[in-house]
């Protein structure tokens, strides 16, 4: 029982981090169709922002979440305006351009903050562990789990119940018709990109106490997050939620029974097979084209 619960909790913890990282990517991909390979670097920048705010201004992690979100959103907004906007008709080229941006971000950090590992302090109040059904789990991981769910709910709310979300859905379904009804698609795309980037920044800040912060940390996240998005289906936020849960539990389970590397390879293989047979993802929104 104890092992079982702790196994589930490990999976949930992996899944919640996946959800945090994938949420931004899913929004951007779902709405604009851009595969943002720089997403991992957004996550990395978020983690570095947390480190910077903590060491330079003594700001606690929780207090710095909002500034980090705003900072990364601004960054995303800039990227969209300068580069992505010109490439919406060339989807393959967006992969290349965003990758180039990622390389630049990585190198810029390496030049300014140095290539060595950085550590971010966990918030004092969340550093003890909690007992759940006999298994212990760190309070901070639980906090991430709930925060990830909270952020998901917030995004879902925006998507579902605000006029911004309505416009967003309209554009996703048919950009031309939506535009003819006076929706400014360019602006919606830009805000979406900024929001997604901000989310990535939050994800980076939140995982920074759990893992060491390095310029390369983004690359692993972007692959995992992309897998979540592919598995979940590109049009549905609920799919993203479900698939990060599934992938989290799956990799937790596989890592328990075999080693980490093989677990990763198996998950990747599963994804390849999935793309081949169900490119629209496991969960698809029913939308009239």
């Amino acid at each position: 029982m104890e092992i079982f619960v702790s196994q589930i909790m490990t999976g949930l913890s992996i899944g919640s981090i996946l959800l945090l990282v994938a949420l931004g990517l899913a929004i951007i991909y779902g709405v604009t169709g851009v595969i943002n390979l720089a997403h991992g670097e957004f996550v990395m920048l978020g983690a570095y922002a947390a480190w910077f705010l903590q060491t330079q201004f003594g700001l606690g992690l929780l207090a710095s979440l909002v500034p980090i979100f705003l900072l990364l959103a601004l960054f995303g907004w800039l990227i969209e305006t300068l580069v992505i906007r010109h490439l919406y008709d060339r989807p393959l080229d967006t992969i290349l351009a965003t990758w180039g941006i990622g390389v630049m971000a990585q190198q810029a950090i390496r030049l300014t903050a140095g290539g060595e590992l950085r550590y971010v302090q966990m918030p004092e109040s969340l550093s003890q562990s909690v007992n759940i059904l006999g298994a212990t789990d760190s309070a901070y991981r639980l906090f991430i789990l709930f925060l990830a769910l909270g952020l998901f709910a917030l995004t879902w709310g925006i998507y579902r119940y605000t006029s911004f979300g309505l416009k967003l859905r309209a554009i996703t379904q048919n950009r031309a018709v939506a535009s003819s009804f006076g929706i400014n698609a360019g602006r919606i795309y830009r805000s979406t990109f900024a929001y997604g980037a901000g989310m990535a920044g939050l994800a980076g800040a939140l995982v920074s106490p759990l893992k060491s912060v390095s310029p390369e940390m983004g690359t692993t996240y972007v692959v995992d997050a992309f897998m979540v998005v592919v598995l979940g289906g590109t049009q549905s936020l609920m799919g993203t939620l479900a698939s990060s849960g599934i992938l989290g539990e799956l990799s937790g389970y596989l890592a328990f029974y075999s080693n980490d590397t093989i677990a990763k390879a198996l998950v990747l293989l599963a994804i390849v097979v999935l793309i081949r047979f169900r490119p629209q993802g496991l969960f698809t929104a029913r939308v009239r084209a």
Binding site: L96, A97, W99, G100, I101, V103, M104, Q107, A108
Partner: peptide
Amino acid sequence: TWTLIMGLLFV
């Protein structure tokens, strides 16, 4: 700086 330049060049 080269990697930085290369990224920029590429974009």
